[in-house]
Design a protein around this nucleic acid. Structure first.
Lengths: 202, 202
DNA sequence: GTCTATATTGTGATAGAC
DNA sequence: GTCTATCACAATATAGAC
């Protein structure tokens, strides 16, 4: 019913999102987008002047979802362990619902870094606060020595790559059983925090 | 000097590898491949009938490098911890030299799974042996309880994603300093094994 | 084996009627 | 706003000379 009520522009955007994410900017066809949106090719150009602008709208939206607003979490008074738990809980849910985001964004950034970086950097990520907190915990002796960025990359890798690498993992390890892999990802949402905490706690 | 001595077919393959990996199958242009190989477009079709076959040659080669032959490691008598250390050491070196492999392969598999899976499954990965060993160590009480595939995915995530996600990490966390990121990856080759082992040891 | 020239098709984009 | 018809060009692929 969302379909029926939504504006033509929205239908175009939704169709474009599906097609760009499935095939990438280069592999996407304006014809296919128009077909899925249930309108004509010419109308795409009426709303979005050209393919590039349509792509950028989709891409920026994808980045906005992929890099969530965790400023409140970062500045909270939670302990490091609780922040890790809270982040995995919140971000895990987002990624489970938008599993295509990581691969799409990484591929496109890789293809045209200079053109697309600003969509990321402009989001104003501030890892400094988290780095400070990690350093303090190391100095206080409450966790094992670790370079903050190593921990951050570990955290993000464990959280994102099982989804980005799904096309591979699901086939190699799960006999291409989609339901089994879905359960596997769900299970991770609870177990990954413990894995990380065990790795760094003294 | 490799360039000078290599056959035309090899020069074409090398050029194709560079272009396909940079732009993907859909983004690659036969013209660019010919230019880089220093020959004419028509000659591409003489050696490889069409773009598809040229791509498949490059892709299969990429998969063969990406999924290394670790059968000997898997069946070795090493303890689980030593296997983890050995794997990270060996595979880390491969990935450091071919950093483009993960993203390229994942993107293409994602684009056309049905067409490209066989290039992976035919390699006959056998995780069963490793799964058994992990289960035994859990039962023996020498490591914390963990589902074997969770550990395997953790291991691969920590090893592959820092490279697949480099375009993102390097800019967000390292101010786009390539040398600094290279050092960061090198440091990981030593620290990641300890991270994992700490996470699972009792 | 390697080239030039060309055929053929696909695709993004525009013109213009309604 | 939405459509049909069409342009212009890019890209794969082939023909054929050398």
């Amino acid at each position: 019913m969302d379909e029926l009520n939504s504006s033509t522009e929205q239908k175009i955007f939704d169709a474009a999102e599906a097609v760009f994410i499935k095939n990438g900017m280069e592999g996407a066809r304006m014809k296919e987008i128009a077909d899925i949106a249930g309108i004509n090719k010419a109308l795409l150009h009426y709303y979005y002047r050209n393919k590039e602008q349509l792509f950028m709208a989709v891409f920026q939206n994808a980045v906005d979802q992929f890099i969530p607003n965790i400023y409140n979490l970062l500045i909270s008074e939670l302990s490091l362990f609780d922040k890790i738990r809270a982040f995995l809980e919140q971000y895990g849910k987002i990624l489970m619902k938008k599993q295509f985001l990581p691969l799409f964004i990484l591929h496109e950034i890789n293809r045209k870094p200079d053109k697309l970086v600003h969509t990321i950097t402009s989001k104003g990520i501030q890892p400094q606060m988290l780095k400070n907190q990690i350093n303090e915990e190391v100095r206080a002796g409450s966790i094992k020595p670790i370079e903050p960025r190593q921990l951050i990359v570990n955290l993000l890798s464990l959280c994102i790559f099982p989804i980005a690498g799904r096309p591979m993992f699901q086939r190699i390890l799960f006999d291409n059983d989609a339901d089994a892999y879905e359960s596997f990802l769900h299970e991770r949402m609870h177990s990954t925090a413990d894995f990380i905490i065990n790795a760094i706690k003294k």
